[in-house]
Design a protein around this nucleic acid. Structure first.
Length: 276
DNA sequence: TCTGGGGTCCTAGGACCC
DNA sequence: TCTGGGGTCCTAGGACCC
């Protein structure tokens, strides 16, 4: 796989086809808008390059922060290039639906609608505290509504959890099939842990029944683990202990988290050793 | 859209300790 | 013996994103 490059840019890969580029080191104008305008030819060139190499269109948003850049890139999909100037951002946002904000999904949209807020402009005009409506997201939501976002472009590639899940063609409670599934998933997880040189302290299983009820159960162990058979054994233990296969499963999933560096071994204090 | 897979973050409750 | 308050950790579920 070829990795996206752009000289002088810090890159945060968000997903397989999305990334943030911080070009502030390369674009230095007299003011914020002048700096942003310097990024336009770079973005155009990036789009041409993607098209010539991959025959794919790409949408790019240029703005002073990640929130606005994302909004800009969504603005004229699938082949857009949108510049959101600092001087115009508040007006640019006003007519957009609140749902356009990253982090506002179906549930939050409904909550806002009930409070009489449907557009970002209405959000800007809403002077009451938003926390009773959306909890700790309130202050961030207000900042977003005014086009403010302090999040830096994050170039680290730290992962917090790894998981694998499978949906069966036909719901099943057949132990042999479930064990085989877990054994395969444990292999996947162990491979990824090994690639990343990580060990995990928490393991979780997930089941879904035919009525879409979904349950998760997790277990934290003292000694970090990374081996396929250890993961598999604990997964079986959890399923059995929690009696999760009380009826046929539509989905079975397995995951690990709570990572420690796989290269580090737990130190045992001499005192503790001598007790045994 | 009767619903796939892999993630992150937040919230709330319970256990436990001081 | 019962009770209070606060902090931390673990757990489970849900909202959201791509």
């Amino acid at each position: 796989m070829r990795v996206l490059t752009c000289s002088g840019a810090l890159i945060e890969q968000v997903s397989i086809d999305e990334a943030y580029l911080d070009l502030s080191g390369r674009c230095q104008g007299d003011d914020a808008d002048a700096s942003l305008k310097q990024a336009v030819p770079i973005a155009s060139q990036l789009k041409s390059q993607i098209f010539s190499e991959r025959n794919l269109t790409a949408s790019i948003g240029i703005a002073a922060n990640k929130f606005l850049a994302k909004l800009g890139s969504d603005f004229k999909k699938p082949d857009g290039l949108t510049l959101v100037c600092e001087s115009e951002k508040v007006q640019f946002l006003r007519p957009l639906p609140a749902r356009a904000i990253h982090g506002v999904g179906k549930v939050t949209e409904q909550i806002l609608t009930r409070a009489g807020i449907e557009t970002i402009g209405q959000l800007q005009d809403y002077s009451d505290d938003l926390r009773p409506l959306v909890g700790s997201f309130g202050p961030i939501l207000r900042q977003f509504a005014f086009g403010e976002d302090e999040r830096p472009v994050d170039t680290s590639d730290l992962v917090k959890s790894i998981s694998s899940e499978s949906t069966f063609q036909r719901d099943t409670d057949e132990r042999k099939q479930l064990r085989l599934c877990l054994w395969e998933q444990a292999r996947e997880l162990a491979d990824k842990l090994s690639q990343k040189r990580l060990k995990a302290q928490t393991i979780h299983v997930k089941v879904r029944y035919s009525d879409f009820t979904t349950l998760t159960r997790q277990l934290t162990v003292e000694e970090p683990l990374a081996e396929r058979n250890e993961i598999y054994r604990l997964a079986c233990h959890l399923l059995r202990r929690e009696r999760l296969v009380s009826r046929p499963l539509r989905l079975l999933g397995l995951g690990v988290s709570g990572f420690t560096d796989g290269a580090c071994q737990q130190m045992i204090l001499p005192l503790e050793q001598s007790r045994w």
